[in-house]
Design a protein around this nucleic acid. Structure first.
Lengths: 193, 193, 193, 193
DNA sequence: TATGAATGAGCGTTCATTCAT
DNA sequence: CATGAATGAACGCTCATTCAT
């Protein structure tokens, strides 16, 4: 399987760096190849085309978030703690990989409609897990029984996303992780039972 | 002043239509010119370059939101009602101009970093007015005294933005305006005193 | 109409020269543009793509042959004289435009299947006129009544084509026009009544 | 000698199939290798480069025609019969190997000038044998004493070639072999004493 | 002998902007 | 003011060939 070969990950990581440093539209395949230390043509042994690189970047990195969320779902804790862990995890991963934060919050959004759709498919998995937390929270009576799950999900994701984007746009000047408790409080206020 | 001449607005409106119909990357200057019924070169008598058209589109349209928000601020009503009006206004304007909704929520976000920064400057005026509402709400004791205004603003804007984007991505299949009360309730739960 | 503008013919002629000098696969669009004294992009104001240039070259030049053949058909002379004029005209045009001879006999044949089919459509018009001469020749009893027209056409065109190709491959060392009477004699022997 | 090893012929035959099925420009070395059941690199143990494969294809296959023509020359029959056998043989071989017909009449002609010259060298051997038949025919008084041998050869080869190419282009819909007598008649009319 | 992963040079086409009319 | 023909820089991808194993 190509995805397990070392060069696959090498190119993915090179793409994140190249995009973060040069911007989406200036991250030419040749720059990614150079950053990865391989020839231009080698890229095409591992990826179908440039779009495939970008979707793969998103898929591979999103897998970290999704995996962590699954672990949180398996823990025997209440919904409030779960959401705190989710927010904190989200902030923490991006706080520790500044390049990735720039890429997911700013650069990858410049992609065309076609690529956006493919990225959204990947994102859906994460949002579906969030829905599971919310549904379960209502069943357990941790959350407001009248909660509109879609709206709640949009509020939670919208808040997290906007918070991170603002942080990235402010050149990551302040500590993102410190915001977790307050963001969590705001969100819980909105949806708790 | 160029902005008052009829062709100026004519080109702005043509740009919105051209972008909504063709997508950001397919909205070439020549297409905008054709839609506006002028020659390509004429565009450059009213705008410095393509980026200038796009920023102007955003500035002119955002002015509607900002103006409405100012009116809301002048009304003698409590913070909860103000925020309801803000949300409802936001949803209503975009619900009634589908082209504009597509352009602001999807297409314009594909622009490069440079243009994004200029768009954010325009957006700032709107967000600053939101901050005024929030500060005033705390003073009046309508809102939680310990509220972190920046976080609250990010939550409110993030929630609204994500809600609208989801609606656009779902091809505007459901009624956006009907969501106002629920979105308002969620937000007020989060921040009220 | 684009085909009447001076730059159209200018580019066509530049293409013939560029292809004759560099060979089919080395005649890049930029070389053709340079030879024509225009910018690369200008090419695309007059031609849809590179293939369109090449088909147009063939169409425009073939028009000379076809036009001459029509004139010959209108003359009130016997079939033998008509065929002599056709052969002589074919030889004469290519003898006087060495570049064109190289392009039609050697270079354009290297084109891919798709282009070949389009070129054949153009060629068909010429061959159809030849068929008219042959049919008419049989009716007039100038030619063998049992003649298979398709075979006769293939023999005539094949002979002319092979003769010219050999001449081009021998670097146009001898006088092509002088061969007309002998080629004509051979062909008439084969098909006359 | 490499040419006697089984893989040599294996690759040659794979090349014919790959070219006939995919077209000249789509017959990459890797496709030929796959068709032959060897690794890409193995090709280069038997052939200097891709051009060498193609010339070898032509040489090996042309050898069939040349060999048959030598046999015909050894037979004690008149010139007319010799030419009939030559035409019939030519038609028959290609009629029975459709792949080869496509390759020699259409695909291999898309090769560059350099390859064309090398192919012509191989072809020359065949044409030289035809010249022998013609010279001998004049000596025997089977053919017109004033015959220009070069022209006659060009007519014969041009006619045969054009006939076969038309047949291939018409997707080999009709029976090529049936055409032999008529083609022979046409040619003999042209050159007989 | 045989393999196949890696290489890297090469090119058609688009489109924002200019400027002579 | 208005036009639109002309410009030319910029880039993703293919594939023949090599060479370490």
């Amino acid at each position: 399987m190509k995805r397990d070969k070392p060069k696959y990950k090498q190119i993915i990581d090179a793409a994140v760096i190249a995009i973060a440093q040069n911007g989406y539209h200036q991250a030419q395949v040749s720059k990614i190849a150079k950053e990865a230390g391989v020839a231009d043509g080698t890229i095409y042994l591992y990826f179908k085309n440039k779009e495939d690189i970008l979707v793969s970047v998103f898929r591979e990195k999103m897998a970290i978030f999704t995996h962590n969320l699954r672990v949180i779902l398996e823990e025997d804790i209440d919904t409030s703690k779960r959401l705190f862990k989710m927010i904190d995890n989200h902030f923490r991963v991006l706080h520790e990989d500044r390049h990735l934060a720039i890429v997911t919050q700013l650069e990858l959004r410049q992609s065309g409609k076609k690529l956006r759709l493919r990225i959204n498919e990947v994102l859906k998995e994460y949002l579906d897990l969030l829905d599971v937390i919310l549904k379960d929270g209502i069943e357990r009576n941790d959350l407001d029984q009248t909660l509109d799950i879609r709206l709640a999900r949009q509020m939670i994701f919208g808040t997290i996303d906007e918070t991170i984007t603002s942080w990235v746009m402010n050149e990551q000047k302040y500590d993102l992780i410190e915001l977790s408790p307050n963001v969590h409080k705001l969100i819980m206020n909105a949806i708790k039972a």
